[in-house]
Write a protein that binds this DNA or RNA. Structure first.
Lengths: 337, 337
DNA sequence: GGTTAGCACTTAGACATGACGAGTGCTAAC
DNA sequence: GTTAGCACTCGTCATGTCTAAGTGCTAACC
């Protein structure tokens, strides 16, 4: 029993099953792929694959379907990269280049990716770490309430209402604003936590309290909110393939709606700097996604933010991986310097 | 055959069907509701109701289920307002009061509403019309690119990148900014289109071109983007009741994802200033929602923005309507002056 | 040793059959 | 206008049978 042929059989099973959604038997296999051996031989190979836990039979006399482990092996060792068609590349390029706003870019990206893959696409807001403070604005909403706006040189704008704990005049606030702005303009957002105390210390003691509150607010602005958000598209694709989620797509929709779940999942996926990462079925930490796979990769500076696709474990991995990788590349290029 | 009893029968059918999801027969009806007449009489009434197109029988020997028209009559004439429980009222109040940001308020609102009704909740961003310009900021991203930020007194922040068509120095831009700001601060956003030309005219001729571009940008900021967006929650509830969408929930998800469809639907729903509006099944202009109903109402200034709930036609209208109305009221109060 | 052919065995799924029950419509009596 | 009674219609469920697909195993083959 040759080891290479066994892998070839696994590959054929995965491909056929992904294509037909039906358990694939030994006979159909030798017909569709010219393996050069008889169905009986394939049966032996299949029995071996089943012993290794790579495939399984839904019932005694049905064909085999891949297990999570089988998909894993397929993805890791067997599948070949499937380059995108010229048309697809062009579609990516033209669609993404027409956008201006960051929101706009991300929105177009998910739509594109979900159409390309016929799955659910998600993209995380890019991390701010390398961005620098371009501008800071404080607006007095009420005597004690200040709207703080932080504008980064990447064109990203963050806002938050802050209760400063003491009454401030417009003039006082303007003074604070110029002090903050002078000290912090050009500071990388990642260094804000270190830089803020000095600014607070330089303020007049009578306004120290308000300055403290504002500093805390800015700190939070830099680190939280947006990068903890994501955009999503293509949930309707889940319903189309509802055969693939026997238990109903409810839990999957719940996971998608609980953005926290998705974000943790994306950030926990092993960092493979060279390519896309795949999380298959029960490998997912969240139970609702036991029948789903996530294909994701990083983009942007340091590949820190993630873009990816979610679909049934029975998914066309090579194509999906290619699409995710290509989209991430274009995305990096557009958002890049 | 008494007319009032016929309506009573329709009411009973709707209520039982909503509760049990099963066609309801004449016998079960007299048992569950003490109507004081025999099942045969009910049968006569039912036959009459069927003739009028208010109920229908899925097959010869099954009970009856309401038609869209039947639901319509039920909603318009029969259903009694079902006040929320004390606990629910408190839940609304505490949950919504803890929020600061507008985004935050809307997000909490949809979550709350979807939990309250076990349906999909949507809320449209409030219209800006009455908001006033609080602050304007221009940031030079590149020699010709300006990031314009418009801050309204409602705490809303809008941003956009504008190509000004000519090179600007930081100083020049600061000059434009202060000119815009001085003229426009306090202007209602709805009056921006009229106010902007005067500002442009007051600028130095050499910067007229840039000022024009900036004005166009601000105009767009005030009128577009956000109020054309909506927030949504509870899509997972669709899957739970997938029995109610025989054709699969795919088309419904598509409609929800195409925000344009939902926004048009919401805005086209007849403006009943005194209460919530209901659009039932095939009354919806969009085919994918032929088995769905939308319960919505306006909120905020002029009740111009909409908040609502989407679910199967087989839905508990009285409760849903009460929840939507209550949430809209709290929302108006919080966002109010 | 690996490969093949053949055959007995298992099982899901499709189909027919019949009993049952829920529900209707109609008619005649009240 | 209401009621009781009865014949009739269907959907559902349980049962049984048959077929096609596919396996596992054994014995022969190279």
């Amino acid at each position: 029993m040759s080891e290479p042929r066994k892998l070839e059989v696994l590959r054929a099973i995965v491909e056929d099953y992904v294509h037909s959604r039906e358990p694939v038997g030994s006979k159909a296999l030798v017909e569709r792929h010219h393996l050069g051996v008889s169905s009986a031989t394939i049966r032996n190979d299949m029995a071996a694959l089943e012993d290794e836990g790579l495939i399984t039979a839904p019932h005694t006399s049905a064909g085999r379907i891949p297990t999570d482990k089988g998909y894993r092996l397929f993805v890791d060792q067997i599948s070949a990269v499937k380059p995108l068609s010229q048309a697809e590349r062009r579609a990516i390029q033209t669609l993404l280049e027409g956008s201006e706003d960051l929101d706009d870019v991300l929105e177009r990206t998910v739509r594109l990716l979900s159409q390309l893959t016929n799955q659910v696409a998600v993209v995380q807001y890019p991390h701010l770490s390398r961005a620098m403070v371009r501008h800071i604005e404080f607006v007095l909403l009420a005597p004690r309430q200040v709207l703080a706006v932080l504008i980064a040189d990447t064109g990203k704008v963050e806002q938050r209402v802050i209760d400063v704990g003491q009454e401030l005049s417009d003039e006082a606030l303007a003074g604070l604003r110029s002090r903050f702005l002078k000290s912090l303009a050009g500071t990388p957002l990642s260094l804000l936590p270190q830089a803020l105390p000095a600014v607070v210390a330089s303020c007049e003691p009578s306004r120290r309290h308000a300055a403290q509150a504002l500093a805390r607010g800015l700190d939070a602005l830099a680190n939280s909110t947006r990068e903890e958000r994501m955009v999503m598209a293509g949930t309707a694709n889940l319903a189309r393939s509802n055969v693939d989620f026997p238990l109903s797509i409810g839990p999957v929709l719940e996971a998608l709606e609980e953005q926290v779940v998705m974000l943790r999942l994306l950030s926990e996926m092993a960092q493979d700097p060279r390519g896309v990462t795949v999380s298959i079925g029960r490998e997912n930490p969240y139970d609702g996604l036991a029948e789903a796979s996530v294909v994701a990769t990083g983009y942007g500076p340091g590949s820190s933010a993630k873009v990816g696709v979610l679909g049934p474990t029975r998914m066309d991995y090579p194509t999906t991986m290619a699409a995710v990788r290509a989209v991430a590349r274009y995305l990096s290029r557009i958002l890049g310097p």
